[in-house]
Design a protein around this nucleic acid. Structure first.
Length: 146
DNA sequence: GAGATGATTGTTACT
DNA sequence: AGTAACAATCATCTC
């Protein structure tokens, strides 16, 4: 296990240090709600929630919020067995998420950041294969000989 | 009965 | 630079 921290991205968590003050450059600004607003304005177009089975393209890793959801959901169900759907939980989770402090959220951000690193590598490999022509994802000219 | 949806925020890719 | 779409999950809804 020698330091495998090969991330050169801005994240560079550098957890090896005691990290008294995790200098994470997360852009947690108050300018949130904007994106959602746009989506809502345009109406979230969701043709199908069914995820496609694109084994070639690396799926997007769950965000910090989702990790928090996973943990929060368990506790939430215990405290609120009446609540069932994830929708209700999501609302409660989102509300609490906003109340959470940076330090509390940073835990999940850190996990998400690592996942992002893997995703980045997976994407790099995916792109690399693409160059090799392993996959013909691009529907430029599917008619090869037909 | 089986498929689709809705709700939450965050991240990513594309234009 | 900004927007559109998708990531997990499951009760509920629709046909």
């Amino acid at each position: 296990m020698a330091g495998k921290a090969k991330r050169k991205t801005s994240a560079s968590a550098s957890p090896s240090s005691s990290v008294p003050s995790r200098e994470l450059v997360f852009s947690i600004k108050t300018s949130k709600g904007m994106k959602r607003s746009l989506r809502q304005t345009n109406s979230r177009k969701r043709p199908k929630a069914k995820q496609k089975i694109d084994a070639k393209k690396p799926k997007k890793p769950p965000t910090a919020f989702f990790y928090f959801l996973e943990d929060f959901r368990k506790e939430f169900q215990e405290q609120n067995p009446d609540v069932k759907s994830m929708r209700d939980i999501g609302k409660a989770c989102g509300e609490k998420w906003k109340t959470m402090t940076y330090e509390e959220k940073v835990q999940y951000y850190d996990v998400a950041t690592q996942k992002r690193a893997e995703f980045d590598m997976a994407m790099a490999e995916y792109n690399k294969k693409m160059e090799n022509g392993e996959f013909e994802e691009t529907d430029e000219e599917s008619d090869f000989d037909e």
